[in-house]
Amino acid sequence: MISDTASGHGFVFLCCLTAFGLLLAAMGRHQADWFGAKLPHRLTLTLRGAGFTMLFVAWLIAGLVLGFGYGTIVWCGWMTIAALILIAANINRDILLKWVKRR
């Protein structure tokens, strides 16, 4: 089990960031922007399910590492930060995609 508090915070943040990335990819209007076309319905449902599962995993890690009272508050904080990062990435999508294509 994860015993180090700092690594617990890192895992919670990464799980939240991954979850919101999956949920963003599961939205039809963003699929065309990021991938050039809408994804098949079955894949969209899989992405949505994986996103919510990752949010649950993040909450579970926070609860097991920090205690469920304090861990839930930490989880909400990391979810907020992860969501803001993905909102900023989605707003600046064109710049990010140009940068990725140059590499």
Rank of each mutant, 00 (worst) to 15 (best):
C16L: 04
G69D: 12
G63P: 04
V74R: 02
F35G: 15
L39P: 11
G77T: 00
T18I: 01
V12E: 04
Y70A: 11
G77F: 00
L64N: 14
L17H: 14
L86A: 06
A37P: 07
I87R: 15
M1V: 09
L23Q: 07
A37F: 01
I87Y: 15
G67L: 06
L22F: 13
R48D: 02
F52A: 01
T72R: 09
L24Y: 13
T44E: 10
A32T: 13
K38M: 03
F11M: 12
T5S: 15
A83D: 11
R48Q: 08
L17C: 09
L66C: 10
W78S: 04
G21N: 11
R48A: 10
L97I: 06
T53R: 02
G28T: 11
L14R: 00
I73K: 08
K98F: 04
A88I: 00
A50E: 06
L84E: 12
R103T: 14
G21D: 12
G71C: 07
R102Y: 03
N92Y: 05
M27Q: 15
L39E: 06
H30N: 15
G63M: 03
C76D: 15
T5E: 14
L55S: 04
C15H: 10
Y70V: 04
R102L: 13
A58K: 01
M1G: 15
A89Q: 09
R29D: 12
R48I: 00
L23E: 06
F35D: 13
A88E: 13
A37W: 01
A62I: 00
F13W: 03
I85D: 03
K101I: 02
G49F: 03
L17E: 13
I2V: 11
T72G: 12
K38T: 09
A83W: 10
M54S: 14
F20M: 03
K101L: 10
R103S: 15
R42I: 00
A6R: 06
A19Y: 05
A89H: 09
F11Y: 05
I81W: 03
L22A: 14
G10I: 03
V74N: 08
